[in-house]
Measured scan of single mutants.
Amino acid sequence: QNEKLANELKSLLDELNVNELATGSLNTYYKRTIKISGQKAMYALKSKDFKKMSEAKYQLQKIYNEIDEA
């Protein structure tokens, strides 16, 4: 289960640069939040902690959705 979550989180991290570029014309909230979420996700992957990875995955998905809707 950890392996599956780690792969999903890696996949979301692969999209980080594209989504970060998409924040160029948006409010600074999005820029700041996506950077923080990305850092948390990288830390969670290194720690291999299921709870941290779950939270990081949720945060990344949430900010990606917010950027898409903005």
Rank of each mutant, 00 (worst) to 15 (best):
L16Y: 14
A6M: 11
L5D: 00
D68E: 13
I34K: 00
A22Q: 08
E8Y: 04
I63A: 03
D14N: 09
N2S: 11
L60I: 03
L12I: 03
T23D: 05
A41M: 02
D14Y: 09
K46C: 12
M42K: 12
L12M: 09
S25P: 11
Q1K: 10
A41N: 00
E20W: 14
Q61G: 04
A44P: 01
D68F: 15
R32K: 13
Q59G: 05
Q59V: 08
Y43R: 13
D14R: 12
Y29T: 03
Q61M: 11
L60C: 03
Y30V: 04
K48T: 03
S47Q: 07
E55A: 09
S37T: 11
I67L: 04
A41K: 00
Y29F: 05
R32H: 14
S37V: 15
K51M: 09
Q61S: 05
Q1L: 12
Q1E: 14
R32C: 15
R32P: 01
D68S: 15
N19V: 14
L12Y: 02
I36E: 07
A56N: 01
K10A: 08
N2P: 06
L5F: 02
Q59T: 06
K31T: 04
Y30F: 10
G24F: 07
T28G: 13
T33Y: 11
A41G: 03
L60V: 01
V18Q: 11
Q1P: 12
K62C: 10
N65K: 14
Q1H: 09
A70E: 05
N7A: 14
K35G: 05
Q1I: 14
N7T: 12
K52R: 10
K31L: 07
K48W: 06
E3K: 09
K10N: 05
D14T: 08
L60S: 00
S11K: 14
Y43M: 13
K51R: 09
E3Y: 07
R32F: 12
K40M: 13
Q61P: 00
N7L: 12
N17P: 13
L9I: 05
G38F: 13
A44T: 00
I63H: 01
S37F: 12
L21Y: 07
K40S: 05
L21M: 09
Q39T: 09
Q59F: 14
I67F: 04
K57Y: 14
I63R: 00
K10I: 08
S37D: 03
N7Y: 13
K46D: 08
N17Y: 14
Y43Q: 15
A44C: 04
K52E: 11
A44L: 03
N2M: 14
Q61R: 06
A56I: 03
E20Y: 14
E20V: 15
A70F: 08
K40R: 12
E69L: 14
A44G: 02
E66H: 04
E20T: 14
S37L: 15
V18L: 12
K52W: 05
T23Y: 04
G38T: 12
L26H: 04
E66G: 03
N27Y: 06
K40G: 03
K40W: 10
N17L: 14
I34G: 00
E20R: 10
N27Q: 07
K10F: 04
G24V: 12
Q61F: 04
L12T: 00
K4L: 11
I67S: 02
E3Q: 10
A6W: 15
K4E: 10
K10G: 03
V18Y: 12
S37W: 15
Q1V: 13
E69A: 13
N27E: 08
D68R: 15
E55M: 07
N65S: 11
N65H: 11
N2V: 15
L45M: 04
M53E: 01
N19F: 15
L13Q: 00
T28L: 13
Y43F: 11
K57D: 00
S37E: 11
M53Q: 01
E69D: 07
N19W: 15
S11F: 06
D49Y: 02
I67D: 00
E3M: 08
L5V: 06
K4G: 06
L45A: 02
K52G: 04
K52H: 05
F50K: 05
A22M: 14
D14H: 07
E69K: 12
E20L: 15
Y30H: 03
L12P: 00
A41P: 02
E8V: 04
N17S: 15
K40F: 15
D68Y: 15
K4R: 11
A41Q: 00
K40C: 12
E66S: 05
N17W: 15
S37M: 15
L60F: 01
E66M: 12
I36L: 10
L26Q: 03
L9K: 00
Y64A: 05
K35S: 06
K31Y: 09
F50N: 08
M53N: 03
K57C: 10
A6E: 11
N19K: 15
I63W: 02
E8T: 04
Q1F: 10
K57W: 07
N27I: 05
T33K: 13
A44Y: 02
L45S: 01
A6I: 12
K48H: 07
L26S: 04
E69M: 13
K51N: 09
S47W: 05
Y64K: 09
M53F: 01
T33C: 15
L16F: 10
S47L: 11
D49H: 03
Y30W: 09
L45Y: 07
L60H: 00
K35T: 07
K35I: 09
I34N: 00
K51C: 12
T23P: 04
I34V: 08
E55Q: 11
L13G: 00
S25H: 12
Y43A: 15
A70W: 09
N27A: 12
D49N: 08
N2R: 12
N7P: 02
I67Y: 03
Q39H: 07
N27G: 14
E3W: 07
T23I: 07
Y58I: 10
E15Q: 15
S47C: 09
S11G: 08
L45F: 05
L13H: 01
L13C: 04
Y29L: 04
L12V: 02
E15T: 08
I36D: 07
K35D: 05
K52D: 05
